[in-house]
């Protein structure tokens, strides 16, 4: 077990953004975190990453857990000159061969070293993935990596993530909108329902939660 959240809740003011979330990721597992917009997927991921404090429940992490994080968006200031190789070494210094192999594993090794502003959306996401891989993570957390990437690019990304999970034997927590991919490829699917803990619940017809419950019933 790499990380395990028990009865996790995060509150902003009086409102619970997420509550009663149970989630655990094992080595080699691909766990999907799905839900509609505003269901608290990113909040949930940030809590798992330790980027924000939880107000309820607990999170257990394996000691010395190395985490790789691919954020949903990275708004780069164009005044900051960054090339491909400079960007992936932002968070640490690594030997050249390791950088090459990280770039190769996402298919960007033949790109040279252009400014990151010239990359396409899909290439940029793959670059962020390579940066996370450089740290040889035990746990990889990806926040909607396929957003803003076309269908083909999204498929490539998903295949990549599967390869990485197999090669590194790491656990993957993947935030996604793609219910179908989640059902067909995930080891487990955690569905978050927006406004579930508001006074008047209107999330009961939520398609993500409904499908996840049905799937859970079949399993």
């Amino acid at each position: 077990m790499l990380v395990k959240a028990t009865d996790m809740g995060v509150r902003r003011g009086e409102r619970w953004i997420i509550r009663h979330v149970e989630l655990s990721v094992d080595r080699g597992q691909l766990i999907y975190l799905i839900g509609a917009n505003g269901a608290g997927k990113s909040t949930c991921a940030k809590a798992i990453l330790g980027l924000l404090d939880i107000d309820e429940g607990s999170i257990d992490r394996t000691p010395a857990l190395e985490v790789g994080y691919v954020p949903q968006r990275l708004a780069l200031n164009p005044t900051l000159p960054l090339t491909v190789r400079r960007l992936i070494t932002l968070t640490g210094r690594f030997p050249g061969t390791r950088i090459e192999s990280a770039l190769a594993s996402v298919g960007l090794h033949r790109l040279g070293d252009p400014p990151v502003t010239t990359l396409s959306g899909g290439e940029f996401q793959r670059l962020l993935l390579a940066r996370a891989l450089l740290h040889r993570p035990d746990l990889l957390v990806l926040d909607e990596p396929a957003q803003g990437v076309d269908m083909a690019g999204a498929g490539v990304l998903l295949d990549l993530i599967q390869d990485i999970r197999r090669d590194l034997q790491c656990g993957v927590l993947l935030i996604s909108h793609d219910l179908q991919a989640a059902m067909s490829t995930g080891d487990d699917v955690v569905a978050l329902v927006p406004h579930e803990h508001d006074e008047r619940p209107f999330g009961l017809d939520d398609p993500y939660a409904g499908a996840a419950r049905r799937a859970a019933g079949q399993a």
């Binding site: 330790g50 200031n77 640490g92």
Partner: peptide, 19 residues
């Protein structure tokens, strides 16, 4: 330099990398 530059690009990435 490294933590500040990483935080300039993304504070979250810097925190997760323990910087």
């Amino acid at each position: 330099w490294r933590p500040l530059l990483a935080a300039t690009v993304s504070p979250d990435l810097a925190v997760v990398a323990g910087l």
